[in-house]
Simulated scan of single mutants.
Amino acid sequence: MNVEDKKIIGRLESIALPELGIAAMQVRVDTGAKTSSLHVDNIVKYMKQGKPWVKFDIHPDIHNVETLVSCEAVICDIRKIKSSNGNSEQRYVIETPMTLGNETWDIEITLTDRADMNYLMLFGREAIGKRLLVDPSKVFLAK
């Protein structure tokens, strides 16, 4: 894919996670993060049809903690992730479709506690892939 074919996004964008019931969520684009990460509460692992699943809650609007979406997804991996503060933790990884602008594709997301962060989700470079370029001086470029 040529540079001209890539969509330019800003350092902040609004995405949807349709299979998780999230119509709009502001995310911080972070090319320093390999995998995207999502703040969730009440993580519970369980087995369903012989596969490991996880239940969790999301508050998709950081300014309205009353809004709660309960989700479940297949666990596709468990990874040791080193966060920006240098601490490492084991995290469940799920794969789910993500919509940015008028495009939808599958991304991997680690589930963690980001309660102390300004944004509930980091949009990492694996999700950015070869399809996007980031202009860190702009916000909300994907329409």
Rank of each mutant, 00 (worst) to 15 (best):
D116E: 10
I128G: 05
N85D: 06
Q26V: 14
A16V: 00
M25K: 01
K34M: 07
A23D: 13
S70P: 05
H39G: 02
E4Y: 14
I81M: 15
N42I: 04
I9K: 02
Q90W: 14
N102M: 12
V69A: 08
K34T: 08
V54Y: 00
K34D: 12
M47H: 11
E126P: 04
N2G: 11
V139Q: 14
L17K: 03
K82I: 09
W105V: 09
M117V: 02
I78H: 09
K51P: 02
P136K: 08
G32Q: 10
I75Q: 06
S84W: 10
I128W: 07
G101L: 01
L38T: 00
I107T: 05
M98N: 08
M98I: 10
R114K: 04
E108S: 14
A24S: 15
V93D: 03
D77H: 11
G50K: 04
W105I: 11
K143I: 10
M1Y: 12
H59Y: 03
G50P: 01
M25C: 01
P97I: 04
L38E: 00
L12S: 04
L100T: 02
K34Q: 05
I78S: 10
G32V: 09
A33R: 03
N2T: 05
D116Y: 08
T99Y: 14
E89L: 08
M98L: 14
G124T: 12
V74D: 13
E103H: 10
A24W: 06
I9T: 05
V65I: 13
S70A: 13
D61C: 10
R28F: 03
R91H: 07
I58D: 01
Y92Q: 09
M117G: 05
F56T: 01
R125H: 01
G129V: 06
L17N: 04
F123C: 11
K7A: 15
W105A: 12
I109N: 06
H59L: 02
K130A: 14
T67Q: 11
L68Y: 00
E89V: 07
R114H: 07
I109R: 00
L17D: 02
V134N: 02
K7F: 12
I9A: 03
